[in-house]
Amino acid sequence: MLLDVREIICGYENTIIVDGCNFSVKKGDIACIVGPNGAGKSTAMKAIFGLIPIKSGQVIFNNEDITSLNPQERVIKGMSFVPQNNNIFQEMSVEENLEMGAFIHQSSMKENLKNVYNLFPILNEKKSQIAGELSGGQRQQLAVGRALMTNPVLLMLDEPSAGVSPIVMKDLFTKLKAISKMGTSILVVEQNAKQALEISNLGFVLQNGKNKYSDTGKALLQNPEVRVSFLGG
């Protein structure tokens, strides 16, 4: 098991948002967390990455308890996170954005840069452009590229398709599949449940901060209950 999240409870101040969730991701998996608005999907992911404190529960990564580590230490362990908003350095060039992604993995930077450029050729084309001038889809690619520069074992994305066109979204999901084929496991929180489940081999449906269903992506797509309540029939 690459990532094993056990019974985490977390939230803000006095409100509990994630109330005892379990997630497990194996090497090579694409896992997605779906659910209605306010189910606690993003909060759960932030808790897994250490951005918000966990009240109880455990996060096991690569057979190591990382519950008490801060996000930077988790990056060193091989996690990488693409936030939903503000996920690029607006005033810096595309290449500088990627260089900053590799800040702690300086030794393998050239090679990682080449891999990212192979995966997203458009970034290579626009490498000296200021990131703030890119289109929405290109920004999202850059954000993913930046996260890949640390050469992560597990790439986590918080709603990567928010605010981009359906075509861009489809393209992005294809890239995610390619990334997982290269050996990086992926955990993604998604609003567009149907499309996300189609590319995932693991799906977690959250409701009110609890696991409602956990199954393979295909099984969830065929599950009539899930279809009716979460996928719009």
Binding site: P71, Q72, I76, F89, E91, E99, M100, G101
Partner: peptide, 23 residues
């Protein structure tokens, strides 16, 4: 320089800079 760029990154987007391992 790497340090100079990390300063610009920090001023541009502090949270992302921290996520990238900039101290």
């Amino acid at each position: 320089t790497k340090t100079g760029k990390s300063m610009r990154a920090y001023s541009d987007n502090k949270d992302l800079a921290l996520l990238s391992g900039i101290k």
